[in-house]
Amino acid sequence: MDFDLIINSFPKLLSASIITLKLLSVSLIIGLFIGLFFAILRIKNNIIFGKIAYIYSYIFRGTPLLVQIFIIYYGFGQVEFIRESFLWIILKEPYWCAVIAFALNTGAYTSEILRSAFQTIKPGYIEAGRSLGIANKIIFYKIQIPIAIRQSLPAYGNEIILMLKGTSLASTVTLMDLTGVAKYIISTTFKPIEVFIIAGSIYLFITFIIHNLIKLLEKKYSF
């Protein structure tokens, strides 16, 4: 055990975890909107839009996240018209490539979580709303969405933790997040165990906080 290394590398890893948290929160927020959008497409009884949403979620859940990042980061840079369009301002940055890949990936999983939450709402709630003469739009926003959010909290908590682990892949496109810095320290000092302990504990600490936050929310919105 090299305790000097542990003490020296701790602040470096801690500051790198800020990038991890930034990646996580930005992609979760974007992914939530993408997921909600595709979940709504799935529950509306339009065959074509439903099929599109299904294919989107099937592709992003059936391929590794690493492939998705590489297609966006390395693949899109090769296409002439993307390089000449305004998109290039975003796609030339590894940070935004990673965020786009993470958001699309978590969006696919979120859409599945929200879809099953919408489908498990008892028809009685919607019928009760209708018999009270509430407009369909208001039933959707005031009855269906709040119940669906409550139903999907436990599954969404798992998804946040999976996404936290997913952000480690940002290190493969040159971003220095927690895993990126950990790999850099390992490959310069050849002390994998010490670095793994610190980086692993930071990840576990973040997981622990997310887990408890979700539990708190579940308690608050339980009925």
Binding site: T172, T179, P192
Partner: peptide, 22 residues
């Protein structure tokens, strides 16, 4: 189960890749 499911896969792979042979 908690450590393995809470730590990124990539970090575990680095641990064994760099630590395994040593």
């Amino acid at each position: 189960t908690t450590v393995i499911r809470g730590v990124p896969e990539l970090l575990v792979i680095y641990l064994f890749f760099f630590g395994g042979s040593s």
